[in-house]
Design a protein around this nucleic acid. Structure first.
Lengths: 215, 215
DNA sequence: CCACAAGCTGACCATTTGGTCAAATGAAAT
DNA sequence: ATTTCATTTGACCAAATGGTCAGCTTGTGG
């Protein structure tokens, strides 16, 4: 009874559980508020209300608003990095690019808030995650660009600038998260259905794969 | 001497010139500040400083921060609508889509701030321009989707969902403005050169045109 | 059961910010 | 020249906000 003290829907009692769950509660609320209001427009009070906690409690777990924000940005970044696995695991260009598009589309659907927070952060010049861009993201990009160039050199796909291809992949997939509201409005005010998400994913995949000579 | 009282680099003296020039000064500063800080992070003081005017003067020309913001968003929207001309004027799908991509890429380069402001506005649920989405943008989109569908029905291009194709065009072109900072970082910290912009435009055009069977 | 540490929170504060206003200045019509 | 109205701006204010803190409650190891 010492392990796994929590079950059912009851709140956690163990110290470690309390911390972990409250941090999760706060991070989830923060992700949404930062996405909907931007860093400047978000208020700790709003995040607290959404998390169902007193504002002072937020500052117990996260010293400053910026600390909280940084954590939110880091999380979506790590989720995206994981999606690279689908790219790397592939044995053919079509498979790799196709799987990557599907993975990123799935993330856009599941983590639209995080995607927006990242987008806003980058749009504002990446004031808090510039180092990530210069280290992790740069390495990631260089490596994948090299892989793509290898495919091109081997005659496995059409010769296109690998970097711009990567930008296209990011742009098209993240667009469904970042501009989800616009898409929803143009869809008659309704969120895309399962079927429509499938169609979006297929269309992006079809056009890009055929676009790089893999159709 | 009553007409055209202004010349050289001197400040305007005529009433109408004063108003027009100060509004332009403020709007240009506001566009940049809103893009770099978001609506919530932007302050009237910052905009005033950048425009070189006292804050109270801003409120003389624009009653509220939101009024000023709305004008900035409207401007980029109109610039984009104008780009539709290149789409409509074309006689073939390849020409229309190609010209539209080039026009939108040019706008991304020339008006990166406006693009970012629009992106942030949409990401936050379009609180101030929702009506534009539901009227002007919806009509625009419906019409172009119909044109594209016509091309498909006539066997002039591959069958792809016209709406998702439009989203791809928006996503890929605007990405170069909205994520310009990220691209610049991945480019070794330097902005894209003329040549690189050209290459970006060509790559996007090549992949998408070939992707819809127009390669 | 006790003592200590972790977790919680209402009340409070200094600062920032959007917006106001009255008085001053400048342009231009009569 | 005089009047009128647009323009300018320093000073000011009420509200909001990030953050602090002292004191309280609760979990937990001994």
């Amino acid at each position: 009874m010492q392990e796994n003290a929590r079950f059912s829907g009851k709140a956690a009692t163990r110290r470690t559980d309390i911390r972990r769950e409250n941090e999760r509660l706060i991070l989830t609320a923060a992700e949404k508020v930062f996405a909907e209001a931007g860093f400047g427009g978000a208020t700790m009070q709003l995040i607290a209300d959404m998390a169902g906690l007193p504002k002072a409690n937020l500052h117990y777990y996260f010293a400053t608003k910026e600390d909280l924000y940084r954590r939110v940005v880091q999380e979506i970044f790590e989720i995206w990095l994981d999606a690279a696995a689908s790219f790397d695991a592939a044995s053919t260009p079509a498979e790799g690019i196709g799987a990557y598009i599907e993975a990123k589309m799935a993330i856009s659907r599941r983590h639209p808030h995080g995607s927006k927070v990242w987008a806003a952060e980058v749009m504002q010049g990446a004031p808090v995650i510039q180092d990530y861009l210069e280290t992790t993201l740069r390495d990631w990009t260089d490596n994948r660009a090299r892989v793509i160039q290898g495919w091109i050199d081997a005659g496995q796909m059409a010769p296109v600038n690998p970097r711009h291809l990567l930008y296209m992949l990011w742009a098209t997939t993240q667009h469904y998260a970042d501009f989800g509201h616009q898409i929803e409005t143009l869809n008659g005010g309704a969120p895309l259905s399962d079927r429509q998400w499938q169609e979006a994913s297929e269309t992006v995949k079809t056009i890009i794969l055929r676009g790089v000579g893999l159709g």
